[in-house]
Design a protein around this nucleic acid. Structure first.
Lengths: 151, 151
DNA sequence: TATTGTTATACTCTATAACTATA
DNA sequence: TATAGTTATAGAGTATAACAATA
């Protein structure tokens, strides 16, 4: 007399699939941008700067959902790479305003290209329609969760 | 004279969205199963056991893609919770065969319920058809990536 | 006194390497 | 000698708390 099994277990849930697949994809993305001496969080910071134009480190910490001390470390690294510049805000000399350099925009383009290539590989088995619909729903879910979607 | 922007930047890619959304969902899932003194990796181990019936710790390490030493720590914890039993394989006394207990199956059901509840919240803004299509594509992508899908 | 950025420190997660017991 | 599991140790990543400069 078998127990009643879960009609379909944890792997059939959207949350589990999204979590495991997201982790796998993030790892693959990280491996590809490692060639530029960048990690996903660096790409996230560059992206935030490209959307916001300028931003203080506190604002970035809030936006990225990380501790301010981590923004210091990320910005230090990006500054060493020549990807960003730190400028004291003359109106409030406590604030450091971060801005993208040309090199930073170039690196962000490289990251985007790497992500697009990965997209192609991941969705090789999908029709164009399936892929488009999937991407749109993904964008809506991300927006609902308060994440950037570029729209 | 604005520079030409990326026609659509990193946040418009499937890889970026999957990675960020996956991370956010994983965090939320972790917060909910913390009430059972479990973390996502524990749920993954319980799931693997439920699919495989029995498994040695080495096999589990391979399946979960983690170091064997981590399986030790995860199994220690699950054993303390009464969720699994360790049995020496009589045929090869080096091997520990892990099996789910009734309590383990109960905990796995609790995790699945938590994931389903989270699913509902995440997809509240989608039609049933959109949701079904999204889940199916997610399953195909996960399967292509070698992850369990429960199918 | 409050706030921005920084530094110092600690904690979590996980892997690698050394070790024990079986084979 | 080789393998399963365990233990010891170390590294990455990130947070919290103390501190300095400025408001």
């Amino acid at each position: 007399m078998n127990e009643v099994k879960n009609p379909a277990g944890l792997p059939s849930t959207l949350s589990f699939r999204l979590g495991t697949l997201g982790s796998a994809v993030a790892d693959r993305f990280a491996a590809r941008i490692a060639a530029y001496d960048l990690k996903p969080k660096h790409a996230g910071l560059l992206t935030a700067l490209s959307l916001e134009q300028v931003a203080s480190q506190q604002e970035l910490a809030l936006r990225l959902g990380v501790a301010p001390s981590l923004v210091v470390a990320l910005a230090d690294h990006l500054e060493r790479l020549g990807a960003i510049e730190r400028l004291r805000d003359p109106a409030d000399r406590r604030r450091q305003v971060l801005t993208l350099t040309d090199r930073g925009r170039e690196l962000l383009r490289d990251c985007t290209t790497a992500a697009r290539t990965l997209d192609e590989e991941l969705t090789a088995g999908l029709t164009a329609a399936e892929r488009g619909a999937f991407l749109r729903v993904l964008g809506r879910l991300a927006a609902d969760a308060g994440l950037p979607t570029g729209d």
